[in-house]
Design a protein around this nucleic acid. Structure first.
Length: 880
RNA sequence: GCGGGAUUAACUCAACUGGCAGAGUGCUUCCCUUACAAGGAAGAAGUUCCGGGUUCGAGUCCCGGGUCCCGCACCA
C-alpha cells in the first residue's frame, strides 16, 4: 500500500535543494511566468488556497517540463486590517492595547509577529508541492515593494491622479477605518420604513417623508421631491421646520428622487448618505454630522448626543411619536452595507480622505480586455470586469490603521505646503523648514497588491527579471477578487509598465463543503487541507481538487472524492510495483520500439498513450485541468492497468518465449516512464518516487536528476488506428465471454471452450490473441471453424467485434432462454441500425455533415448490419 | 431592477468548434485469480428542468417559462 507520508517531504526537499524551482533571467527559452496571489501573512492554508495553488502548480510544472523558462513568484500580503486585528487581539490578551503601546511600538510588535508566524503559510504551500521559486519570495511590506508603493503614489500624486478631499466614505466603526466601496457588502435585511411628518414653515400644513434611518434626521438639511411631481410642485422652494430640532430647511427638487417610493418626498442628510451627499453638492446644502466615528451621536445631535446610533433611533422614534410627528411605520426589506471584515453596519460619513481618480486609469484597462490583450477564462468574467470598470468610482485608498504603507505625504508645519515624496524628506522643499508632519493614514492593502506583478520582479528598478518575466503568462485566482485585485493590477500594470500584467486570467470557483455551503469559521465547516494531506497525501488532495472541475465553477469537497484519488494513487503505485518486479532484469538500451516484434496490444497501448498525452496537453493548453485529470485517470486505470498489464502477464512470465518477454518489458518500461512524466504535474510526489525507483531497479542512469525537470512527452509516431480498432474488437470479445460466464453462472475457476467463427480480416489477429483470450476470459481450448460451418450444438453464441464466439456449455444452455437472449440483442441491434440507416438515407445528412462523421456512420452501419445478419442466422439455426 | 451561473444516473459532477450522453461514489451479483479487496469481473440505473424554435442532427445554439445560487444597483 502506498504511504505518501514517507515520500512527499523527502522529494520536496530534494527539489528545492537542487534548485529546480529557480531560474535565472539569462537562461534561454520561451518564458512562462506566474505570480502567486499572495495569501495573507496571518493566514493559514485553507481549501481555497489549496485549489488555487494546485491549479498554478499543475500549469507551472507542465510548462517547465515543456522546456519553458518557468518562474513562479511566491509571497505574502501584509493584509492591513486582518493582521492589525490579529495583533490587537494578542495585545488584548496581554491586557494592553495599541494606543497604550503607541504607533511605533505597535508596528514593531506586528513585525515581530510577522517574523514569527508569517512563514506558516509558505511552509504549508510546500507541503502541497507548490514549485515556487522561493528565492524570489516577496512580502508586500518588504523594502523593495514598499519602494514601489511610494514611487507609484508619488507619481500618481504628482500627475493629479491621487487627490485628497472631503467626501462621503464608508466608515466601519468597529475597524475604525474607512473602506472602499467594494469592501462594503450589501445584505438584504428586514427593516422598517418610518413615515415622518415635517411641518411647513408658516404652519399651513406639512410634508411627510419616508426613511429607514430616522436617526439621521438630526442631520437633515433639506427635503427633496421629484421636479415633476405634481403633488409637491407647489411646495418646492418653501421651508419646513425639522421636528425636534427646529432647524428650518428647504424643500428642493431633484431628479434623483423616485416619486413612487414611500411618500415621494425624501429627507436629505448630506453628511450620512452617499446620495444625499451628492444632492447636497448639487444644491449647496450644509452638512451636519450627527454620527461620529464611534457610531455614537455627536454634539450636533443635541439631546441625543452620546447615544449609540441604534439607541438614538429608538429614542427618536419614541419622541416623534409622542409629539405626533410619526405617521406610520411599515415593514421594509432593504440592503444594508456591512464591513466585509467584521460585518458591522457601515456608517457613511464625510471625512477627508485620499482618492485615486479612476476614470483615466480605467479607460486603458477596459481596452486591454476588450481587445483581448487580457483574456479571462472562462470569458464570461470579462463581462463582470467590464461592467465594473465602466461604472467605476474613485477609489478611497486611505485607511485609519497603523499597519500598512504609510501615505508618503508630508505637510510643512510652518508654511502649510503639502507634498508627496518617495524618500522621507528632511525639510520642506518650499520653505526649508524641518518641521514636517507625515499623513497619519496608511494605504489600502490592495494598493500594494495592485503592483504585485511588477513590484515582485524588482520595479521600480529596471531589473533583468522585470524585463524577462513581465508580463506574466497567466494569473490564477478566484472570482471573488476580480474587482479587488485583478482589475487593479490591470490598470496599474498598464499605467506603470505600459503593458498588461498577464495575458490570461484563469478564474476558479469556491471550494464548498459536502453540502454545498461556503466553508466558514462561524459555521465551523471548514476542512483543513493539512489534515487531508496528513491522512491521504498531497497528491490525493491535489488530484481531488482539480478533478471534475470546470473553470469558474464552484466545487464541493467530499471525503469520498479524496478517497477515490488516494485509491488512484495506490493503483498507480501497485501497477508500478508490478512493473518493477518484472523489469528487474531489464535495462532499456535505447532500441527503437518499432524494431521489436510488437504484439497487437503493444501497438495498441503505445497508440493510446500517445493519444492520452496529446489529449492531456490539449486540455492543459485550454486551462481545462479537470478534463486533463480525467484523461489521465482513464488512461492509467482503464487501459494501462485493466488491459495492458493483464495482457502482458503471460509474456512477462515467459510463456510466450524470451523475445516476447523482452518486447513486453521494453514497451512496459516505455509506457510507464512516459506515463510518470504525464502525471507529474498532477501527482508530483508519487510520480517522482516511482520514476526514481524505476530507474534504479532497471539500472538505468537518470537522464536528468528528477522527473520534474524531465521533458514533457512528445508525439513519437505511435498512433495506430488499425491497432486500436482490432484491440477494441478483442476487448469486446473478451467482455462478451465474461458476460456469458457471469450470466450463466459458470464457476469462476472453470475453464470453458471457445469456438470462433471469424471473417478473414479478423483471423490473423484472433490467432495471435488466443493465449490472451484464454487468460483474460478463462478459456481453455480455442478452435476455429469455417465461417460457413454450422454452429456447434448446445452452445451459447456471442456476436462481438465482428466475430462469432460459440461457448459450448452443455447443461447450461436452455434453447428458449438462448432464443430470448438473442432476440433481445437483435431487437437492440436492429433499432440502432434503423437509426443509422435513417441518418444515412437522409440526403441532408450525407451532403451537409462533415466527411468524417458520415464515414463513421457508414462504418457503424456496416458493423451493425453484419451483427444483425449473424444474429438472425444464429436464431434461425436455433429455431430449426 | 440589470447581469451571470447552475439545472444531466440515487448522490457529486464531466461532456472541446452542435455529431453514438460519460466518470467517481453508491447499488445488485460473483471473486482473497502470484501488482493492487484502497482490488478484480459482470450488471442495473437517463424524458439531459419544462415548452417552443433553428438545424440533416441540439445536453450544447435561439426564444419563453420554472427552481436554486451569485454578482451589480442611488428603492431613501
Amino acid at each position: 500500500m502506498y504511504d505518501p507520508r514517507n515520500v512527499e517531504g523527502k522529494w520536496y526537499q530534494f527539489w528545492e535543494e537542487q534548485g529546480f524551482f529557480h531560474v535565472e533571467p539569462d537562461d534561454p527559452g520561451e518564458v512562462f511566468s506566474v505570480v502567486i496571489p499572495p495569501p495573507n501573512v496571518t493566514g493559514s492554508l485553507h481549501m481555497g488556497h489549496a485549489l488555487n495553488v494546485t491549479l498554478q502548480d499543475v500549469l507551472v510544472r507542465w510548462r517547465r517540463m515543456q522546456g519553458r523558462l518557468t518562474v513562479w513568484v511566491p509571497g505574502t500580503d501584509h493584509a492591513g486590517i486582518a493582521t492589525q486585528h490579529v495583533v490587537e487581539e494578542m495585545l488584548a490578551r496581554e491586557g494592553t492595547d495599541r494606543r497604550s503601546l503607541g504607533r511605533e511600538a505597535f508596528v514593531e510588535r506586528v513585525w515581530q509577529w510577522k517574523e514569527r508566524y508569517g512563514g506558516i503559510i509558505t511552509r504549508q504551500l510546500r507541503r502541497l508541492g507548490a514549485s515556487c521559486d522561493w528565492r524570489r519570495e516577496r512580502f508586500t511590506m518588504d523594502e523593495g515593494l514598499s519602494r514601489a508603493v511610494r514611487q507609484v503614489f508619488v507619481d500618481l500624486y504628482e500627475r493629479g491622479l491621487i487627490y485628497q478631499g472631503n467626501y462621503i466614505v464608508n466608515w466601519c466603526p468597529t475597524c475604525a477605518t474607512t473602506l472602499s466601496d467594494i469592501e462594503v457588502e450589501h445584505e438584504e435585511r428586514d427593516g422598517k420604513l418610518y413615515h415622518i411628518r415635517y411641518p411647513l414653515l408658516g404652519g399651513d400644513g406639512y410634508i411627510t417623508v419616508a426613511t429607514t434611518r430616522p436617526e439621521t434626521m438630526l442631520g437633515d438639511t433639506a427635503v427633496a421631491v421629484h421636479p415633476e411631481d405634481k403633488r409637491y410642485e407647489h411646495l418646492v422652494g418653501r421651508y419646513v421646520v425639522l421636528p425636534l430640532v427646529n432647524r428650518e430647511i428647504p424643500i428642493i427638487a431633484d431628479d434623483m428622487v423616485d416619486p413612487d417610493f414611500g411618500t415621494g418626498a425624501v429627507k436629505v442628510t448630506p453628511a450620512h448618505d452617499p446620495n444625499d451627499f451628492e444632492m447636497g453638492q448639487r444644491h449647496n446644502l450644509e452638512q451636519v454630522q450627527v454620527i461620529g466615528l464611534d457610531a455614537r451621536m455627536t454634539k450636533e445631535a443635541g439631546p441625543y448626543a452620546g447615544m449609540d446610533r441604534y439607541e438614538c433611533r429608538k429614542a427618536l422614534v419614541r419622541d416623534l411619536e409622542a409629539k405626533g410627528f410619526l405617521v406610520k411605520v411599515e415593514d421594509h426589506r432593504h440592503a444594508v452595507g456591512q464591513c466585509y471584515r467584521c460585518d458591522t453596519v457601515v456608517e457613511p460619513l464625510v471625512s477627508k480622505q485620499w482618492f485615486v481618480r479612476m476614470k483615466p486609469l480605467a479607460a486603458p484597462a477596459i481596452e486591454a480586455v476588450k481587445d483581448g490583450r487580457v483574456r479571462f477564462v472562462p470569458e464570461r468574467f470579462a463581462k463582470n470586469y467590464l461592467h465594473w470598470m465602466e461604472n467605476i468610482r474613485d477609489w478611497c485608498i486611505s485607511r485609519q490603521l497603523w499597519w500598512g504603507h504609510r501615505i508618503p505625504v508630508w505637510t510643512c508645519q510652518r508654511c502649510d505646503h503639502q507634498f508627496a515624496a518617495a524618500d522621507d524628506p528632511a525639510f520642506c522643499p518650499n520653505c526649508g523648514s524641518e518641521d514636517l508632519e507625515q499623513d497619519p493614514d496608511v494605504l489600502d492593502t490592495w494598493f500594494s497588491s495592485a503592483l504585485w506583478p511588477f513590484s515582485t520582479l524588482g520595479w521600480p528598478e529596471h531589473t533583468k527579471d522585470l524585463e524577462r518575466f513581465y508580463p506574466t503568462s497567466v494569473l490564477v485566482t478566484g472570482f471573488d477578487i476580480i474587482y479587488f485585485w485583478v482589475a487593479r493590477m490591470i490598470f496599474m500594470g498598464l499605467y506603470f509598465m505600459h503593458k498588461e500584467p498577464f495575458r490570461h486570467v484563469l478564474i476558479h470557483g469556491l471550494v464548498r463543503d459536502a453540502l454545498g455551503r461556503k466553508m466558514s469559521k462561524s459555521l465551523g465547516n471548514g476542512v483543513d487541507p493539512l489534515e487531508v494531506i496528513e491522512e491521504y497525501g498531497a497528491d490525493a488532495l491535489r488530484f481531488t481538487l482539480v478533478t471534475g472541475i470546470a473553470p469558474g465553477n464552484d466545487t464541493r469537497y467530499q471525503p469520498e472524492k479524496v478517497e477515490a484519488s488516494r485509491n488512484f494513487c495506490n493503483k498507480i503505485w501497485n501497477a508500478a510495483r508490478f512493473a518493477m518486479m518484472n523489469l528487474q532484469d531489464y535495462t532499456p538500451d535505447g532500441t527503437d520500439l518499432r524494431s521489436l516484434p510488437l504484439n497487437l496490444h503493444d501497438r495498441w497501448i503505445l497508440s493510446r498513450l500517445e493519444w492520452a498525452a496529446a489529449e492531456i496537453n490539449r486540455h492543459l493548453e485550454r486551462f481545462d485541468l479537470g478534463e486533463g485529470a480525467r484523461t489521465l485517470y482513464d488512461f492509467v486505470w482503464s487501459e494501462l492497468c485493466d488491459w495492458y498489464i493483464e495482457l502482458i502477464k503471460p509474456r512477462l512470465y515467459g510463456r510466450a518465449g524470451e523475445e516476447s518477454r523482452c518486447t513486453a518489458q521494453a514497451v512496459l518500461w516505455h509506457v510507464l516512464e512516459t506515463t510518470l512524466r504525464l502525471m507529474h504535474p498532477y501527482l508530483p510526489f508519487l510520480s517522482e518516487e516511482i520514476w526514481q525507483h524505476l530507474h534504479r531497479v532497471t539500472g538505468t542512469p537518470l537522464p536528468v536528476p528528477s522527473v520534474m525537470v524531465a521533458s514533457w512527452p512528445a508525439p513519437a509516431g505511435f498512433r495506430d488506428e488499425a491497432a486500436e480498432e482490432e484491440m477494441q474488437a478483442l476487448i469486446e470479445i473478451v467482455r462478451g465471454i465474461r458476460n456469458v460466464r457471469a450470466e450463466k453462472q459458470v464457476e469462476p475457476g472453470r475453464q470453458i471452450t471457445a469456438i470462433l467463427q471469424a471473417p478473414g480480416s479478423r483471423r490473423g489477429m484472433l490467432e495471435e490473441a488466443v493465449p490472451y483470450i484464454q487468460a483474460l476470459a478463462r478459456v481453455g481450448a480455442v478452435t476455429f471453424i469455417d465461417e460457413a460451418a454450422p454452429a456447434p450444438e448446445q452452445a451459447v453464441a456471442i456476436i462481438a467485434g465482428g466475430v462469432q464466439v460459440h461457448l459450448p456449455l452443455a447443461g447450461l444452455v436452455d434453447i428458449e432462454q438462448e432464443v430470448a437472449r438473442l432476440e433481445k440483442e437483435l431487437a437492440e441491434t436492429a433499432q440502432q441500425l434503423a437509426a443509422v440507416n435513417a441518418r444515412l438515407n437522409n440526403e441532408g445528412f450525407v451532403s451537409k455533415a462533415p466527411e468524417h462523421v458520415v464515414q463513421r456512420e457508414r462504418q457503424r452501419q456496416q458493423e451493425l448490419a453484419e451483427k444483425e445478419r449473424l444474429l438472425r442466422q444464429r436464431l434461425a439455426e436455433l429455431r430449426s
